[in-house]
Amino acid sequence: MYASGLWVAFTLTASAAQTARNVMQRELTGALGALGAAQVRFLFGLPFAVVFFVGLRFATGVAAPAIAPAAAAFIVIGALAQIGGTALMLAAMRERSFVVVIAFTKTEAAQVALYALLFLGETPTFKLVGAIALATVGVFLMAGSGAEAARAGWRPIAMGLVSATFFAFAAVGFRGAVTRMETPSTAMAATTVLVAGLAIQTAVLLVWLALFDRAGLKAILALWRASIVAGFMGALASQLWFVALALTDAARVRTLALVEVLFAQVASLKLFRERPSRREWLGMALIVAAAAMLIGG
């Protein structure tokens, strides 16, 4: 397996942390709006990313790497795409089931394979294509029937699908960045990209909120106690994602990350009392099968 399977452990742990962050952000969306809740992930995640960076620097003795122009360009692409994806996902969650929205955003895996081929030259294997196809069918099953989608309306569905496109560009951007960092340390490359990406995202959203939504900015600061935990989980998830993306190709990581839908189902059942249907159980089984294909080699 790639990197002795370490990418699997990092991806699964990141998926669990991201599910926790999504739940927290969903709860904050009502008070802060989609952009405000998105900012929580970045503003309160940045200090933790800096702590990760400093701790790694002293623990390993590896110097902070230089960021080449090519890596910087990929970081900007990934950072801006992640803002768009996060805001659209949270806006969709206000109108539709938590699990269903997560399911639509996870059509990202198929898009990642395409964009990674086009922009990074990463050709997917037949097994990976099969896993993506199997997992994507599972995702659509979990998204509910056509009648359920019609009742929900097109807005949350469209936002979820476009969100997936943004997240796909983010994954490819950050994969491109970490593989172009001038350092022999995978962890240092990932942490440096994380700090740089969060700094860009925080700056962009702070300027936006200061210009167009000062009340929202004040509300974010007022809710710092709830936001700081979401920020930590977001920074932890991103740290683990980036290490996984440094170890293997983007499509492989983002396809295995579809297990987040299963974690979202557990969270939804316990917190939001949204019980799975038989169709959703079948979808989950297909996602598990796809994950098994990837973990098996």
Rank of each mutant, 00 (worst) to 15 (best):
I228S: 14
M24Y: 07
A237M: 02
R275Y: 03
T202D: 06
G61E: 00
A133F: 05
K106W: 02
T19W: 02
V62I: 13
V62A: 09
A170M: 11
A257V: 10
A68L: 11
E260Y: 02
L294T: 12
L198V: 06
P184F: 11
Y115H: 10
T13S: 14
W241I: 08
K218T: 05
F140A: 08
G55Q: 04
M293S: 02
A203G: 06
L118H: 14
T183V: 04
W208F: 00
F263I: 02
E260L: 04
M181D: 00
I295G: 09
D213K: 06
V99G: 08
F58R: 13
A110H: 09
A59D: 01
L88G: 08
A199R: 15
R26T: 11
L114E: 05
S277M: 04
E108C: 03
E27S: 05
T29Y: 02
V229Q: 10
L271G: 08
A68T: 15
A246K: 14
R279G: 10
A133Q: 07
F272T: 08
F44N: 03
G231Q: 01
W7H: 05
A133P: 13
V40Q: 13
G36A: 02
A168I: 05
F263Y: 14
L245C: 08
V261P: 07
V100K: 02
F58D: 01
L205V: 08
S97I: 08
A81R: 10
R57C: 00
A113G: 12
L141F: 07
E108Y: 06
G146K: 15
L262Q: 13
L118A: 11
F174M: 11
V172S: 01
L269G: 12
A149N: 11
T19P: 08
A152R: 10
G33I: 00
A14V: 09
A103D: 00
R94K: 14
T191G: 01
F42L: 08
F166M: 12
F272S: 09
A257P: 05
M159A: 11
T136G: 06
A70Y: 08
F44P: 04
A290K: 14
L205E: 04
S4F: 12
A131C: 07
G36R: 03
P184M: 09
M233A: 14
G85I: 03
T192N: 06
A222H: 15
P124L: 03
R279I: 12
M181N: 01
I102A: 06
V195G: 05
Y2K: 14
W7S: 07
A264K: 04
E260A: 01
A177L: 08
Y115N: 04
A152F: 07
Q239S: 10
G283A: 05
M233F: 15
F98E: 02
K270A: 05
T192W: 06
G84R: 09
A244I: 08
A143C: 09
M1Q: 14
W208S: 03
F212K: 15
P47G: 12
T86P: 13
A16G: 13
A222D: 11
P156K: 09
A64Y: 13
G216R: 05
G30Y: 10
L282W: 15
L205A: 08
R254Y: 04
A290R: 15
Q39L: 00
